[in-house]
Design a binder for these strands. Structure first.
Length: 438
RNA sequence: GACCCCUUCGUCUAGCGGUUAGGACACAUCCCUUUCACGGAUGCGACACGGGUUCGAUUCCCGUAGGGGUCGCCA
């Protein structure tokens, strides 16, 4: 029998990071075993079923690179894949349950399921056999008075109808799974194989809620994370791939995925580690890809790009200093604008010694002698020339040039900056720096 | 309250009876670099507690404590 798994989110308006990780594990399992990954929208709650809420799910999954074989937009033989459109199927299933004498109707019209009230064991790939004593809970509601159905019922019916073989879901469902098994048995069906995966906790140690930073998948894009980093990091929460490194691409993750290695304890979300991973993924982008990724953030900072190639190269030059895409503007703004701020400690450096005036003057002379377009090597020669003229080491000149060029005391090498700036701006900025001297 | 899951450095974790308890992130120091980073090296730092079982427990069992979750006509 071929593997069939599903991710069955409810449209709540955003894709929760825990949901994304659940989708991820289902997806990895399906891909590993060449099975089918199905997306099913559990939108039985009419009020929440908005297009925006559905799109949040689709967008989030797509951003992460999780594709589905069956489901909305993908089609498939078991549709429709919106529970709101499957009423007739549920009615039919309810009839069989009623025919078997397993339901009863309340005065107000609600239909309840008669629990078998026997001990039920949940065999779980992660938690082992989890035993539940015969329940003393009230019988569970299957259908509301208005005819709409309850999660437990539709979830089980659809898993039967869609031929689901394995269910990876959050551990928060474990305590209810005996109800599902009770239903499967009432239908005369074998339940799927369950794997309840640990929850993702916030740094405080409780379940990630909407308010927690990083709870919404969409927020990662906003905050400057790369999807491949988030994808990778999410895999590390609740699972330890057997590999030399923790930085692993999707294909490798698929090969490595092994349910026996899934943890049973919850894990806290650690933004610092995600950031670290993100920095590594960022660095391996091509200059063009890096510019494309950074672009929205540069735009937002009001930086105008007129020379694509130069901009890409400039951004690439600070790749090892940036952890998040949001950090690019502060590292490269002076490449794109002349009215950049002069940081205080930078200004102090400029004004620190009386001989700085002569050093700047020598630099202007040396750079003025350069051709209109010059290489980084030529910039270096100009630097050496200026230093020699003043009988100082080139290193003594660097902080001054850096301050004049960028207004900050960090960044790429000064000759790199000079090269990207070009002769005109180099000279104008050195001249401007002279006016700041006292 | 009942039931379920869990418990190794601050965080994520390796460990599946005998280890100097390993790694990653974070942090600190040093090296590299006349910037900031990157990189390299070193350091800091953990088996929740109490009983068993055993020649020997981080590892197996029980209890306690702690954390998380579930008990809806939400999903």
């Amino acid at each position: 029998m071929s593997i069939r798994v599903r991710f069955a989110p409810s449209p709540t308006g955003y894709l929760h990071v825990g949901g994304a990780r659940t989708a991820l594990f289902n997806w990895l399992f399906a891909r590993k075993h060449h099975g089918a990954f199905i997306l099913r929208i559990e939108d039985t709650d009419e009020a929440r079923n908005t297009e925006a809420a559905r799109n949040a799910i689709f967008d989030g999954l797509r951003w992460l690179g999780i594709d589905w074989d069956e489901g909305p937009e993908a089609g498939g033989d078991c549709g429709p894949y919106f529970q709101s459109q499957r009423q007739a199927i549920y009615d039919r299933y309810l009839d069989t349950l009623t025919a078997a004498g397993r339901t009863y109707t309340e005065e107000n019209g609600a239909v309840r399921f008669k629990f078998s009230r026997t001990p039920i064991t949940v065999p779980d790939l992660v938690c082992g056999d989890v035993e539940f004593a015969a329940t003393e809970e009230p019988d569970m509601t299957l259908r509301r008075p208005d005819g709409s159905y309850i999660f437990h019922f539709v979830n089980v019916v659809d898993d039967i109808e869609m031929g689901i073989t394995h269910v990876f879901r959050g551990e928060d469902h474990l305590s209810n799974t005996w109800k599902h098994i009770d239903l499967f048995e009432a239908f005369g069906k074998n339940p799927p194989t369950y794997a309840h995966i640990p929850l993702i906790l916030n740094p405080g140690g409780s379940k990630m809620s909407k308010r927690d930073e990083g709870a919404a998948v969409a927020s990662y894009e906003q905050d400057g994370y790369l999807p491949q980093a988030v994808f990778n990091y999410l895999c590390l929460l609740g699972w330890t791939p057997r590999a030399e490194t923790e930085k692993l691409d999707p294909n490798t993750l698929i090969q490595l995925f092994d349910t026996r290695e899934i943890h049973s304890g919850n894990a806290r979300f650690d933004a610092a580690k995600l950031k670290w991973l993100n920095a590594h993924y960022l660095r391996e982008l091509s200059p063009e890809a890096m510019l494309a990724a950074a672009r929205p953030f540069l735009d937002r900072a009001g930086l105008i790009i007129d020379d694509e190639a130069n901009a890409a190269a400039a951004i690439y030059s600070v790749r090892e200093k940036v952890h998040l895409l949001t950090e690019f503007p502060e590292w490269v703004h002076y490449f794109f604008r002349d009215d950049f701020p002069m940081e205080a400690d930078c200004l102090a450096k400029l004004q620190s010694k009386p001989e700085n005036a002569a050093l700047l003057e020598a630099a202007i002379t040396a750079f003025a002698a350069l051709p209109d377009t010059f290489t980084e090597d030529q910039a270096h020669e100009a630097l050496n020339t200026a230093a020699a003229a003043q009988s100082v080491k080139p290193g003594a000149l660097m902080p001054l040039l850096r301050a004049a060029f960028s207004g900050q005391n960090r960044g790429p090498g000064v000759t790199t900056i000079a090269h990207f700036l070009g002769k005109q701006k180099v000279l104008s900025r050195l001249t401007a720096a002279q006016t700041l001297l006292k």
